[in-house]
Design a protein around this nucleic acid. Structure first.
Length: 566
RNA sequence: GUGCCCGUAGCUCAAUUGGAUAGAGCAUCUGACUACGGAUCAGAAGGUUGUAGGUUCAACUCCUACCGGGCACACCA
């Protein structure tokens, strides 16, 4: 068996050395291969070749020379050097185009060699090689256990989970954590609201009891508390306030965990704020800040000097009634993240937390940590549509669309996919009607269908053959434009994954998969795969198998299934 | 009022973080099944990138001002 060409080093390495040498020959000193390497990119448009460099522009600027003639000269040297280099036979053409770009066009064999790489790497194909592994704490959802998860949490859950998958795929060590805000004012209000509902139920059973007053405005209004109070009534009709609080809190949290599990999202750890408080770590952190001289007392309250670290005003940590603000335990929590040895923290929050970022980072800097290690991603709001019609959402009177409803309506795959389709900092329009349809208009089906369709073709072949063929010698049969387009995209998978890792944006994987699926469908519409021509059949089956591998890998990064049949 | 985000084709969004003639999908119009899954594919049309300046070989991208939309500005969480 021949050794796969995927084991060869990336062609950029060879080309950057060549380029540096060509620059030297053209009388340009200080042109290092490493400087050249960073300038290579895959051109946006296919007609500009497989790889492109704008290196000449950068050098021309320093030397105040016209880029185009300089590029011509360098390209001439490159052509001369190519034959004797490691890249010989891999590059078909070197051309100067536009204002001075040098474009490299690969040979058909080089383009098709990606299939070898995919076959030998399998599920590992596309894993970036030059990513420095980090210990990352990814905190997301972290919804207060005062009500069921909403669509907004759904988006955060899909984003966080997919991001974790991308980061792990790139070699990072990721811990998924849910900060459980299980004590404090909101939970107290939850207890009161539950008690209110319990009283109402008690009165139904015993009309002699005094009538319930109208429900106070600041109480949680949702019907889910009536249900929970009903369960509590069955267990203990005379439950006191404390029992109401704990019962409702734990019952809601159990529901949240169920929703997350059904959405395919699991956490490594649920970090309890209550436990944090009891551990004394909040006091210790506060002491630490005092020792460092970052807090002061004024008007009976304790303030953090966050303005020293870029915040627009100082923040209260201990109120004049001696209670902590929300910020204080959260500072201790993030301090703990550093002490637990995490090098990078990612917090996914809703848009209402925008103003929170500066003070949180300031607090960590005050404690001597690197504020840039804390990455806060603000996931923008989701607007639901049913076709053209907007689905109204209102937190008023406890009316909102829950994640559970999304799950019931469109399912896990379509739900996750739609939440991931856009950049997280852009508003998301979620069309429930579209997510439910099984037509090519629906991008999730378009991609999954490509995967299932390939399986179906493979099965047609396997009806008459024992196993799928693999023969690198026939790869030159994949030279048409539609095949080339697919091959090129396959080669770009790793770059796209790495872009998702660098920008913390899983939507890049979504966009890539749509492109790959499209290129496959176009190829498939024009070409019959299983024919009498055995080498051609083999070559095309190799192409399809590789597409399937990459589709499965990419869908895996989104947490979306890759069905064999639909 | 102050700060942050956004403004790209009729609609929803891209544009490799400063690169080449600003690209897709939907919708519209015109086409393709004796077919391994038509649950698919091809073509046409659609733009002064909110406006006006600036920075440079090169600006949707960076800077300034203005216009329009969203969000945040608690001893709430």
């Amino acid at each position: 068996m021949t050794k796969g060409s995927g084991a060869r080093r990336p062609i950029q390495e060879d080309l950057s050395e060549l380029l540096a040498e060509a620059m030297r020959l053209s009388g340009q000193p200080a042109a290092s291969a490493s400087a050249a390497r960073g300038t290579f990119e895959v051109p946006r448009e296919e007609k500009f070749g497989d790889l492109s460099t704008n290196f000449v522009f950068r050098v021309a600027k320093e030397n105040k020379k016209a880029p185009r003639p300089m590029a011509e000269e360098v390209a001439g040297k490159l052509r001369g050097l190519l034959a004797a280099s490691a890249a010989a036979g891999r590059v078909e053409k070197i051309a100067v185009e536009g204002p001075g770009f040098i474009n490299f066009y690969f040979t058909a064999q080089e383009t098709a060699s990606v299939l070898d790489a995919i076959r030998s790497a399998g599920a590992d194909y596309g894993r970036p090689k030059d990513v420095k592994p980090k210990k990352i704490l990814l905190e997301f959802v972290s919804a207060n256990p005062t009500g069921p998860l909403t669509v907004a949490h759904g988006r955060q859950a899909a984003l966080g989970d997919s991001l974790a998958r991308v980061l792990q795929f790139c070699g990072h060590q990721v811990t998924r954590e849910y900060y459980n805000n299980d004590e404090g004012v909101q939970i107290t209000t939850l207890g009161l609201s539950t008690q209110y509902r319990l009283n109402a139920i008690r009165r139904e059973h015993d009309p002699k009891l005094p009538e319930n007053p109208p429900i106070p405005e600041n109480y949680y209004q949702g019907d889910y508390l009536i249900e929970i109070a009903g369960e509590l009534y069955a267990k203990n009709p005379n439950a006191g306030l404390d029992e109401c609080r704990l019962f409702a809190r734990d019952s809601i949290m159990a529901g949240i965990k169920k929703d997350l599990a059904d959405f395919g999202v699991h956490f490594d750890n649920f970090y309890s704020q209550e436990a944090l408080g009891k551990s004394g770590k909040v006091e210790k952190t506060l002491e630490e800040l005092k020792r460092l001289g970052k807090v002061y007392e004024s008007e009976g309250a304790v303030w953090l000097k966050s303005t020293d670290f870029g915040d627009d005003k100082d923040r209260v940590l201990v109120k004049s009634d001696k209670n902590y603000t929300y910020l204080t335990p959260d500072i201790a929590y993030h301090h703990e993240k550093f002490l637990r040895g995490f090098e990078m923290m990612i917090d996914i929050l809703g848009p209402d937390h925008h103003g929170y970022i500066a003070r949180l980072k300031a607090s960590q800097q005050a404690l001597g940590h690197d504020p840039d290690a804390v990455n806060v991603l603000i996931a923008q709001l989701v607007t639901l549509y049913e076709g053209e019609k907007q689905v109204r959402m209102s937190t008023r009177a406890g009316e909102f669309v829950t994640l559970r409803e999304i799950l019931d309506e469109v399912g896990k795959d379509a739900g996750r996919f739609f939440f991931l389709m856009r950049k997280f900092d852009a508003h998301l329009d979620f069309d429930l009607a579209l997510a439910k349809t099984q037509t090519p208009d629906n991008p999730i089906f378009y991609i999954q269908y490509a995967h299932a369709r390939i399986e179906s073709v493979k099965n047609v072949f396997l009806e008459k053959n024992r196993e799928l063929p693999w023969d690198p010698a026939v790869l030159d049969r994949l030279s048409g434009p539609l095949e080339t387009r697919v091959l090129r995209l396959l080669g770009q998978y790793g770059d796209n994954v790495q872009a998702a890792e660098r920008t913390l944006e899983p939507y890049r994987v979504v966009a890539y998969l749509m492109e790959l699926a499209g290129a496959f469908h176009r190829f498939y519409a024009e070409n019959r795969v299983v024919t009498e021509d055995a080498p051609l059949t083999a070559a095309r089956l190799m192409l399809l198998t590789s597409v399937q591998t990459v589709l499965r890998s990419g869908l895996g990064l989104l947490g979306v299934s890759a069905p064999l049949k639909m």
